[in-house]
């Protein structure tokens, strides 16, 4: 009788564990930067329990100054990360076996900004000027645009802040519309004091945030990844409809991560990021966009074979 009881208990425990294992698969997701409204949809999906509803357990981790999201992916600390398209493809050129499973952003937020006082009104005025550009990630696209226009500019690599631009150390700054552009505004420069050059207006409307996994992971956790993407879309849709709530969630995440935060900036960011994703729920990467980025990057990797679109973009939905 006693032996039977133990057996029964063991059986129950085993079956419960098994079913949990079968039903809720764990995924670790890392966005490609620190907590901010750029990733609001994922926080909302987690906060609202959309991931749990989809039968997955998602842990969101964030990169730091010393460790980036690519590192998380390669080291296996993260199953899925978000990256700019250009960064994703760049890493593919570098030999990382990653694939894009969903393209969330459909537009470019990249832009140049200059103070009107420096008399820069057209792209041609960039000639001979000091142009700030981030060291990490996606400098290829702005550089491609400037190169296309055959302008000699003095590129100044920047780590992260807009202070050098504010203090007049550089004439032009490469910024994200949803982020640094507003940081400049929130540092006291008025919009009418700035000249802006959206890369999308010059034929470089290259989509940005997309979801990347290693080929292996795609094979192993296909269902979970699909559930993650679906639930994330749901998160973004909910965020679009409940912006105040979303902002509170974002600010709280930033506070927990000890990152300076203010509502004014995050509100701006949320609005712009949502605009860039329009239509929300469409996660296809368009081939022409891929081709354009491929062409831009190809120059840096003349020895590498071409990357096939269908190998790179493996839509999960």
């Amino acid at each position: 009788m006693k032996t039977n009881t133990y057996l029964l208990i063991l059986l129950i425990i085993f079956s419960v564990c098994n079913s949990v294992h079968a039903q809720t698969q764990k995924l670790v997701f890392s966005p490609h930067w620190l907590p901010q409204a750029q990733f609001a949809g994922y926080y909302v999906a987690e906060e609202m329990g959309f991931y749990k509803e989809a039968g997955i357990e998602v842990e969101i981790i964030h990169p730091s100054a010393s460790v980036n999201a690519m590192h998380f992916l390669q080291s296996g600390q993260a199953d899925i990360i978000s990256l700019f398209l250009v960064t994703g493809l760049d890493n593919r050129f570098k030999g990382v076996d990653l694939v894009n499973i969903a393209q969330f952003s459909h537009n470019s937020a990249l832009m140049f900004v200059a103070k009107k006082t420096s008399n820069i009104n057209t792209l041609k005025d960039f000639k001979g000027k000091k142009v700030g550009i981030w060291r990490s990630g996606f400098e290829e696209i702005p550089k491609a645009l400037i190169h296309e226009h055959q302008l000699e500019v003095n590129w100044v690599p920047i780590l992260s802040t807009v202070n050098l631009f504010l203090l007049g150390g550089i004439d032009v700054m490469t910024v994200m519309w949803y982020n640094e552009y507003n940081q400049i505004y929130l540092s006291g420069l008025n919009e009418d004091e700035l000249s802006t050059f959206f890369l999308s207006d010059y034929g470089y409307n290259i989509p940005e945030d997309g979801m990347y996994v290693l080929q292996n992971t795609l094979n192993e956790k296909n269902d979970a990844l699909k559930a993650f993407v679906e639930a994330s879309i749901k998160g973004w849709q909910y965020a679009a409809k409940n912006r105040d709530f979303t902002l509170d969630v974002v600010i709280e995440r930033m506070r927990q991560a000890n990152i300076p935060s203010n509502k004014a900036h995050q509100k701006w960011m949320l609005e712009k990021v949502l605009e860039l994703q329009e239509p929300i729920g469409q996660t296809n990467l368009e081939k022409p966009d891929f081709d354009q980025v491929h062409a831009i990057l190809k120059g840096q990797y003349p020895q590498s074979p071409d990357i096939i679109f269908e190998d790179f973009f493996r839509p999960i939905r």
């Binding site: 100044v156 690599p157 920047i158 780590l159 050098l164």
Partner: peptide, 17 residues
Amino acid sequence: ETYEYYYMDWYQIPAML
């Protein structure tokens, strides 16, 4: 490689200005 100090504001700004 992970601390390229000459890109930090405290270096870059006075260096350029």
